[in-house]
């Protein structure tokens, strides 16, 4: 977010630059079980974002001092490939932004994963952004939920995430990179659809109380679509096999 001097017009004749309406989601595709070695994995294409999520574990918590005798601990690493953006080559390894995203992502899953079933163990979650186009943390969380479920780790909910923001007078859903760069506000949200409660909430910019309430409504509406894509991705490998014998 920056109010640059050469700020482009992001909404023309009531449409966004990529032709979407204010409440429209970009195309979301998810594949479950993409990576052979991981215990659970998912690949998501969300607009031009391309992200892999993988879960390893539960396994013995090492080093020992990270172990909690009452429950499993989750470690999360969100990271962006140095070739993921259209601009300059990035630096490899997580920066401060990535470390913060890793932390809030981990906290989403600490709420929904049944950690008490595996005391003393650890579960690793890795999110690798191969190509970024705005909203990577939301897409990463959405993919990570599928990776967790495909691993068989018990969960109380299947969370999803999406961001809303503000462009001029408009509250808009699912900002892409250019919108994110020049918007007046950005608010990523993760929800547990069963709990119907907020698991991740960040905000940056300027929004009114009404804007935020409207934004959360947009998130919920988009969420029913995202949830369907997640469920379909989880079922697809099994249904494909079943259909052979019908």
């Amino acid at each position: 977010m920056s109010g640059g001097t050469d700020k482009p017009e992001l909404i023309v004749n009531g449409k966004r630059l990529d032709g979407r309406d204010m409440g429209d989601l970009r195309a979301v595709k998810i594949e479950a079980g993409t990576l052979k070695n991981a215990d659970g994995s998912a690949y998501i294409e969300w607009g031009n974002n391309k992200i892999l999520a993988a879960v390893y574990g539960p396994k013995e918590a090492l080093p020992k001092h990270i172990a909690d005798p009452e429950r499993a601990v989750i470690r999360c690493r969100y990271s962006m490939a140095p070739f993921s953006s259209l601009e300059e080559h990035g630096r490899s390894g997580p920066n401060r932004r990535a470390i913060e995203i890793s932390k809030v992502t981990k906290e989403v899953f600490e709420k929904v994963v049944v950690l008490e079933d595996f005391p003393g163990s650890k579960i690793d979650l890795f999110i690798e952004v191969l190509q970024s186009d705005g909203g990577t943390r939301a897409a990463g969380i959405t993919a990570a939920a599928v990776a967790f479920a495909s691993s068989g780790i018990p969960m109380l909910d299947l969370p999803y995430a999406v961001s809303v923001g503000k462009i001029g007078e408009h509250v808009v859903l699912d900002l892409n990179k250019i919108e994110d760069n020049y918007s007046d506000a950005d608010m990523p949200v993760a929800l547990g659809p069963r709990l119907n409660e907020v698991l991740l909430l960040q905000m940056d910019g300027s929004m009114s109380r009404q804007d935020i309430s409207k934004g959360l409504e947009m998130v919920t509406r988009a969420g029913s679509v995202i949830s369907q894509v997640q469920k379909a991705a989880l079922k697809e490998p099994y249904e494909k096999v079943s259909s052979r014998y019908r």
């Binding site: 479920a149 018990p154 969960m155 109380l156 299947l158 659809p193 469920k231 989880l234």
Partner: peptide, 8 residues
């Protein structure tokens, strides 16, 4: 039917 975590 196939169900996912959190499904009734």
């Amino acid at each position: 039917t196939i169900v996912v975590p959190g499904e009734v």
